[in-house]
């Protein structure tokens, strides 16, 4: 069963008079449960494609089906609700809230879910525990290493039990060893929870750990 179906998608950025075609007629289908690497050099269009798959951006032309829903027909609020229910993000810069502790950062992802504070805390701690970070629950992001921060970010992503986790260069700000540990953790979650992972990277060691590699070059998919 396909989770995402992208047909003839182009994305053009308009910069004053010049227009940049970041994606050119892309076709791609991602099945539920895949562990997929999006590989390509800097500026090739990885982020643009992830944004479109994550429903935070819309294609200039073409069609996107997410979980069999044509996203073009959805309003901003409907897209927000769709993300809240089904999609999580992991970022290159971790994007944790500096004023919140680790466990509060994870709880924040449950902000829109109707549950009691105690329940929220319990699930957040469980997610942190899975990342082996329960002992840092009360620490603020700036008191943690990059690898620890990214693991908090992954805990925040998985605590909502989404269908899809999108990770844009999740290892780019980490050293190789830590980066590989992070990818292994994602792999483990993918196995246990059947969560679909799509991550972009240009690190060969990371690419090697994927089930499937989609290579993108200058806005075009060169091998899927």
């Amino acid at each position: 069963m396909s989770l995402i179906q992208i047909s003839n998608v182009s994305r053009t950025y308009q910069l004053n008079s010049i227009s940049v075609e970041a994606l050119k007629n892309v076709n791609l289908t991602v099945a539920a449960g895949e562990f997929l690497a999006l590989a390509g050099p800097s500026g090739s269009g990885k982020t643009t494609l992830l944004n479109i798959m994550g429903c935070i951006d819309k294609p200039t032309t073409g069609e996107v089906l997410f979980d069999n829903i044509p996203t073009a027909s959805l309003s901003n609020d409907q897209l927000s609700d769709l993300r809240a229910e089904k999609i999580s993000f992991v970022f290159q810069n971790f994007n944790l809230f500096p004023v919140l502790t680790a466990v509060e950062n994870v709880e924040y992802a449950l902000f829109l879910k109707k549950m009691t504070a105690a329940q929220r805390r319990k699930e957040a701690e469980a997610a942190l525990d899975m990342m082996g970070l329960l002992h840092l629950a009360k620490h603020k992001p700036l008191e943690m290493s990059g690898g620890q921060q990214q693991r908090v970010a992954i805990a925040r992503a998985i605590v909502r039990e989404p269908l899809l986790i999108l990770a844009d260069e999740p290892t780019a700000n980490l050293d190789h060893k830590t980066g590989e540990e992070i990818v292994d953790l994602m792999r483990e979650i993918n196995r246990q929870k059947k969560t679909t992972f799509i991550f972009s990277t240009h690190d060969q060691k990371v690419i090697d750990r994927a089930d499937r590699v989609v290579r993108i070059w200058d806005g075009e998919i060169v091998s899927a």
Binding site: I56, N76, D81, R83, A84, S88, F89, F91, L112
Partner: peptide
């Protein structure tokens, strides 16, 4: 980030 998390405008 919070918008990506699904918080509406």
């Amino acid at each position: 980030t919070i918008m990506a998390l699904g918080i509406r405008r």
